[in-house]
Simulated assay, not measured.
Amino acid sequence: MFTGIVEELGTVAAVEDQGDAIRLTVRASTVLSDAGLGDSISVNGCCLTVVSHDGVQWTADVMQETLDKTSLQGVKPGDRVNLERAVTAEKRLGGHIVQGHVDGVGHVVRRSPSEHWEVVEISMPPELGRYLVDKGSITVDGVSLTVVEAHDTTFTVSLIPETLARTTLGSRQPGDRVNLEVDIIAKHVEKLVRAYTQDAGATAGTGTTKEQS
């Protein structure tokens, strides 16, 4: 589990094509300070497993499923990526609960700079729209953000200078692909409510009451 608070910007050092997967090597420092084999590190919001590291760079295997469903498809040496280690029990939950499981890929639609922040509009797959609400949480490329306005197929976020400087969102341009993960709590609530309404509908359809059963 992650919090969506990016710890550092890493740099893709190598991408080895393995046919139905890639071996991704990333240069980093902060996230390697206590990393061990098998640990999880979020790369642009994708939870990946450390398979080797030398204190300067680390490597992960990225399966075809991940490539098909995320913006890691097409990643190349020199690309900057957002990195975050898995959260520990002692760590402050500075963002929100993030799993590192990408729900869909969106695109930057437009950027609107102002004096102290920048509003960014991002498109999303229509099926994700029901999980977003104004002032709710969304993860974009592994960054925990607050939704300003939620629409059916787009949403906006306001990026402060710290976010612009310390994450890839400072350089994303219109048309660029970004990984999206909606709030897991919203998905759980939806499932529970759906089950409750289905059960209620089935009970109503029988025409029985508690006293009659």
Rank of each mutant, 00 (worst) to 15 (best):
T11R: 15
S52K: 13
T3V: 11
T11F: 12
L9W: 08
L32K: 03
A14R: 13
G38W: 05
T59M: 08
A35N: 07
A21V: 06
C47I: 03
D17V: 01
C46R: 05
C47R: 00
V12H: 04
S29G: 14
S42L: 00
T59H: 08
L48G: 03
G19F: 04
T11C: 12
T25F: 07
V50R: 08
V56M: 10
G38N: 01
S29L: 14
A13G: 09
E16L: 07
V50P: 00
G36A: 14
A13L: 09
D54A: 08
T25A: 11
G36F: 11
T3F: 04
I41Q: 03
R27F: 15
S40E: 01
V51D: 01
T30Q: 13
I41E: 02
F2W: 03
F2L: 02
A13Y: 10
T30M: 10
G55A: 07
R27S: 13
I5L: 11
V6F: 07
L37S: 13
S33D: 14
L48S: 03
Q18W: 13
F2T: 05
G19P: 01
Q57K: 14
M1A: 15
H53Q: 09
T59G: 08
A35I: 05
G36P: 03
T3G: 07
V56Q: 14
R23I: 10
T59C: 10
Q18G: 15
A60S: 09
H53A: 02
F2Y: 04
L24G: 01
G4Q: 06
G4Y: 03
G19H: 03
N44E: 10
S40K: 04
G19M: 02
A14N: 12
H53R: 09
V6E: 06
L32Q: 10
I22K: 00
L48R: 09
I41D: 02
S52Y: 13
V51L: 08
G4F: 04
I22M: 00
L37E: 12
T30H: 13
